[in-house]
């Protein structure tokens, strides 16, 4: 399992709608902020890259020291972004695909406002379980 893994879901207006630290290593105090910063820096790269391919999984789009940013862009341009030190590309792709399906179910709820924070604790539990399984 990845030591460091920070996962965020960014809505169309570039505002995060979900965040989770899913790595196994002990957390640095400022880890969350650092991770947010790195992921946000990657957004511009993602934006351009997304238009060059019809694939949703964009693999690694940016680097920071030994950390890599991998991204998955959905049809509605919601970005699933993972900051990680793992090299398990297949695992990462599977993780993204399964989270994507969960996201669609959240979206199908008419009482969920697209672009708003995902507050479902079930979603959080399942995402963390998927991270343990695939990353």
């Amino acid at each position: 399992m990845a030591n460091t893994a920070c996962f965020i879901i960014v809505g169309r207006n570039d505002i995060p709608i979900y965040e989770a630290e899913v790595g196994s290593a002990a957390k640095r105090e400022d880890a969350a902020q650092l991770h947010q910063f790195i992921l946000h820096a990657a957004l511009d790269v993602v934006q351009d890259l997304a238009w060059t391919t019809s694939a949703m999984f964009l693999k690694s789009v940016d680097r920071f020291n030994d950390l890599v940013v991998s991204v998955y862009v959905t049809a509605g341009h919601t970005r699933l972004m993972l900051l990680h030190d793992s090299r398990n590309e297949d695992g990462i792709k599977s993780f993204f695909q399964e989270v994507h399906e969960l996201y669609i179910k959240i979206l199908l709820n008419p009482l969920y406002l697209p672009g708003s924070r995902i507050s479902s604790s079930h979603f959080d539990t399942k995402v963390r379980a998927l991270a343990r399984k695939y990353l």
């Binding site: 997304a50 949703m56 509605g76 919601t78 669609i104």
Partner: peptide, 19 residues
């Protein structure tokens, strides 16, 4: 529409995103 886009691209288009 916003929901149909995500649902159908996933189900009918094999997760292919139109560019």
């Amino acid at each position: 529409g916003s929901r149909v886009l995500e649902l159908l691209c996933n189900r009918e288009k094999g997760n292919r995103r139109e560019t």
